[in-house]
Design a protein around this nucleic acid. Structure first.
Lengths: 119, 119
DNA sequence: GCGATAGGTAGCCACATGGCTAACCAATCG
DNA sequence: CGATTGGTTAGCCATGTGGCTACCTATCGC
């Protein structure tokens, strides 16, 4: 778990590009060689290969070469890094809103007490 | 929901920087003015303000100015955009793995049938 | 061995990003 | 009013990113 933050940088950056997200989406349906991954896009091969490198550096994807074909596949575990950060974040503000809610209810209850005293 | 993809670009890009994630984390505990958000960081004010702009452009955060103080607060709804993409992704490959699992079990069952036939 | 196929490298370019300083508002305070 | 405080704008710089073309390498099929 060394340098969680740097990992998040890489993962989120990798996800911030539509081409790369499309590649991931494709890989969600199963492993595929470079040529197949490249097929849906207009761009030149080297451009796509750069994207694949970004994804692999981020750890979202891994590849292996057999003969002249390199096959890529998803590393689902890595997605969890991002998901965890987001859900931790949500837990943070949700708990705050809960406390706020509790506080507001407490206030309201107090108001009612006062109202009764006044009546 | 116009141009989902461009939104994801912005959100994920905004999340890909440790400073910005730290700011979000801080805002998870409640709204805060610029000066308070800037306090934990070494960097010059204008640099941090750029980060705040990125966050606001991505829609993760909103701000309002009162007097000379600008207060920022979280827009939790926006996080859902990212979370949804990730969980959709996961649903995709999980269903695939399920099918694969089913397939493997089917294969195994068939093998056993054959084995019985052979015996 | 030779040509076709699959991929990879190098190097270029335009533009975006993240940092800075300096100078500039615009409220407040005394 | 004048100084201070809280932000903001402008503009500079180095580096990163995403695209390209051109060329190179390695395997495969015949």
């Amino acid at each position: 778990m060394a340098n969680q933050s740097a990992q998040l940088d890489g993962v989120f950056h990798a996800l911030s590009d539509p081409t790369r997200r499309a590649v991931l989406q494709r890989l969600g349906k199963g492993a595929a060689p470079v040529s197949e991954l490249a097929e849906p896009f207009e761009m030149a091969l080297p451009s796509l290969i750069k994207h694949l490198k970004v994804l692999e550096d981020a750890g979202l994807v891994k590849s292996e070469k057999e003969g002249r074909v390199r096959t890529y596949e998803l590393v689902p575990k890595k997605f969890a890094t991002a998901e965890r950060w987001l859900s931790d974040q949500r837990a943070l503000w949700e708990s705050r809103l809960d406390r706020l809610d509790t506080y507001l209810h407490a206030l309201e209850a107090e108001e009612q007490t006062k109202a009764k005293r006044r009546s």
